[in-house]
Computed example of a mutant assay.
Amino acid sequence: MKSDTIKTFNQKEFLSKFMGPAPKLRKMIKDDQGRFFMVPVQDMIKISQVPVPPTRATTHTLIYLTEGVASMTIGFQKVRIRKDECLVVAAGQVFSYDKHEVNRGFISNFDDDFLISRISGKELLKEFDFLNIWGNPVIKPKGNTVNYIRQTLQRVLDEYQHNGLTNVALIKSYFIAALCELNTAYQPIAKSGSQVALTLVNGFKEAIHKYIKEKHHVADYASLLHVSPNHLNKTVKSVTGKPASAWISETLITEAKVMLVHTDHSISEIATALGVYDQSYFSRLFKKYEKVTPLEYRKMIDLS
């Protein structure tokens, strides 16, 4: 039964299914140093059900493959990683996938508090663009970096499987080291443009995720970012290959899909919640991107 509020990935529910009612479960889910868990990818597949419809992540998820492939849709972007590549779903991002694939590797779920408490400060988060809503979700390490990442993640997994978060400082140290290694291979999403242009585009992406239910026009975001609408549209298109208007529409449709899947609200109520007061326009826009109407999309998800 769907609820009136949007559901999100429930880490506690996952851990309960995977680990059982262990005495340490509550501490392993969340303690005063944040939330963290790690399991082999192949073990998670045993308990996961597909398809997973558009769902908002409440914490960061990192998948590193040592064998096989993995496909996912993040926001409106379809991504695919292979052996020795990494996929990151940043907290707040919407993700979905529709099939099990043969693969092996590591999957970890964690929040900002886990990274910044005790042994590191908030400044650390600024080092990892891939943990931002606008970051590139795919990282492709090369050379010796591949071995360093594998070894470091394996050390984290071994410690976590044997001792939970008993030696949390040790786990954090190795895990942050793995993120730092990944950071050396990270490349931002950009077809072209200067650092100034990339900074503007990143600010724009962050703004649309924050204000999409209130602001639907390029001019709205240009005003927030203190540039002209024409400059914003051109810059976004030059860096990403798509104009700012397309990013706004795609983000709006992504939000609509989450609400269609995880609430019982009517199509009219969803359109209104997203700041679109013309239901016919909302349905036309949705069909333009999804090839089906909002109602047909909901029925498809229910059948699956």
Rank of each mutant, 00 (worst) to 15 (best):
E290N: 15
T272V: 10
T293H: 08
L252H: 03
Y281L: 13
A273W: 03
A271D: 00
D264L: 12
Q279W: 01
W247T: 07
V258C: 02
S266E: 06
H265T: 02
Y297Q: 11
I270T: 00
S280L: 11
L252C: 08
Y277G: 07
K257C: 09
A256H: 02
G275M: 06
Y297I: 09
T272Y: 14
L260F: 04
G275A: 04
A244V: 10
T272N: 13
K287G: 08
E250N: 09
A244K: 11
V292H: 13
E250C: 02
K237F: 06
I253R: 03
A244P: 07
A246G: 00
T263G: 01
K288W: 08
L260N: 04
H265P: 01
I253D: 08
R284A: 13
S280D: 12
D278E: 11
G241D: 09
E250P: 04
S268K: 13
W247V: 10
V276A: 01
V276Q: 12
Y289Q: 14
E269A: 14
S238A: 15
W247R: 03
A273M: 08
L260D: 01
L285H: 09
K288D: 11
F282D: 05
I267A: 02
Y289R: 13
S268T: 14
F286I: 05
K287N: 13
